[in-house]
């Protein structure tokens, strides 16, 4: 075969493969939007579920997800940022820091359902928090910890070394240097990572299955020790556990969940882009 023809066929093949990978994304988004859009209404988003979830809205699930994600972030961000500060600013390349990095890589690879088991064993049973928003938030928080740490590390590492040296040479202490000369400039990167973590936490189902999620609750949760419905679990329930749910409700729920996650991801992308444009060093 002619070398040129070979080249053309090969490149065509690679292009075809790429299309096969990317096209389903558009198909998924298209189908969900097309079939779910008609369900979207004020009542669907802000109403309580009625008549066996076949009417009314998904508000308790949406609110539950917002609660869970907020709790997860409150737990994971301080811990993750401090952990990244330890790795970047304090630790030297020794056994402990290598062990920490290995632990982070492995945490990122632990199956989400195993996090669910962990949350059940530790928070629900051992610490006695019960099946509650608290247990679910902590479980989700631990799950997104690697995301937050990795993003924060990258953000801290991108701050030029000279800032630290100048600050220390002016008599600032190590913590003052981190607080005043490093963290402010790492903040946009940390924020981007946090939003990505939010998106991840909002869409996860397996970790909340046994730690918080309620099949159906006719009222809104009142404390962190209450159970709650959650959007991804609600989608699972109405699409597999309860027969005969209206099709537009199922697609509508999927659409709301998808929108929530995609908006968060777009926010992160825009933030990252604007920050790169503004950066001056």
């Amino acid at each position: 075969m002619n070398v040129r023809t070979q080249q053309r066929i090969a490149v065509g093949f690679l292009f075809f493969c790429t299309v096969l990978v990317v096209l389903p994304v558009l198909v998924i988004l298209g189908i969900i939007t097309y079939k779910g859009f008609s369900a979207l209404s004020f009542e669907f988003i802000f109403g309580m579920p009625k008549s066996g979830m076949n009417a009314g809205g998904i508000f308790p699930a949406l609110l539950g997800t917002i609660y869970l994600v907020t709790g997860a972030i409150l737990f994971a961000v301080p811990l993750g940022v401090l952990s990244a500060i330890y790795l970047v600013e304090y630790s030297r390349d020794n056994a402990i820091s290598r062990l920490i990095k290995l632990a982070i890589v492995n945490l990122a690879g632990v199956p989400s359902v195993v996090y669910g088991l962990f949350g059940l064993g530790v928070f629900v049973v051992f610490l006695g928090f019960g099946v509650s928003i608290l247990s679910g938030s902590l479980t989700l928080g631990i799950m997104i910890l690697p995301v937050i740490i990795t993003a924060s590390r990258e953000a801290l590492e991108s701050v030029p070394q000279s800032f630290r040296i100048v600050s220390l040479s002016l008599g600032a202490s190590r913590w003052q240097t981190i607080r005043h000369a490093v963290l402010p400039h790492a903040l946009p990167g940390i924020l981007t990572g946090t939003i990505l973590g939010l998106g991840r936490a909002a869409g996860e189902t397996a970790p909340i299955l046994f730690t918080v999620a309620a099949f159906y609750l006719p009222r809104l949760p009142e404390s962190v020790f209450d159970q709650t419905m959650a959007l991804p679990y609600h989608l699972y329930v109405i699409s597999t556990q309860v027969p005969g749910i209206r099709e537009d409700f199922r697609f509508g729920t999927a659409l709301v969940l998808l929108l929530l996650v995609l908006i968060l991801n777009f926010a992160a992308i825009i933030l990252r882009y604007r920050f790169r444009k503004k950066k001056r060093w």
Partner: peptide, 9 residues
């Protein structure tokens, strides 16, 4: 005072 001017941002 260092070789390169390092103003903080």
């Amino acid at each position: 005072v260092f070789a390169l001017p390092f103003p903080l941002p």
